[in-house]
């Protein structure tokens, strides 16, 4: 696994106690599922807050780069991309 150019995960404020206050962490992973697994390895407790039954928690979405990932846990990441966990958006 490459150690440079890893995806950069932005940690939501309520989760920062788990990262000792780190706002952005670099985590390897070819897709979101792997990123979350690797997050959990480094910061135990992370997965429970993001996932339920191996899917993203209801009402939660993940953005890779500037757009919301339509494939959820299966969404491919990439070198240097930003990953954000955000409320899911509907619309009228």
């Amino acid at each position: 696994m490459a150690t440079i150019n890893m995806p950069r995960v932005f940690i939501p404020p309520p989760m920062r106690p788990l990262t000792a206050g780190e706002e952005v962490v670099e985590v390897a992973g070819a897709n979101i599922a792997q990123v979350i697994e690797n997050l959990e390895q480094r910061f135990p407790g992370m997965k429970e807050r993001l996932c339920q039954d191996d899917a993203l928690r209801p009402g939660l979405s993940v953005a890779v780069g500037d757009s919301v990932a339509t494939l959820g846990m299966l969404q491919r990441t990439g070198p240097d991309v930003e990953i954000h966990f955000l409320p899911a958006i509907g619309g009228g």
């Binding site: 309520p14 429970e48 993001l50 966990f85």
Partner: peptide, 25 residues
């Protein structure tokens, strides 16, 4: 209360009207 990024509340905790909480910084 379900807070995005927080640990889920215990099932035996007191119910509330505040269903969700969000924080962005």
């Amino acid at each position: 209360t379900a807070s995005v990024g927080s640990a889920p509340a215990a099932k035996d905790s007191k119910p509330t009207n505040i269903a969700k909480h969000f924080l962005f910084e």
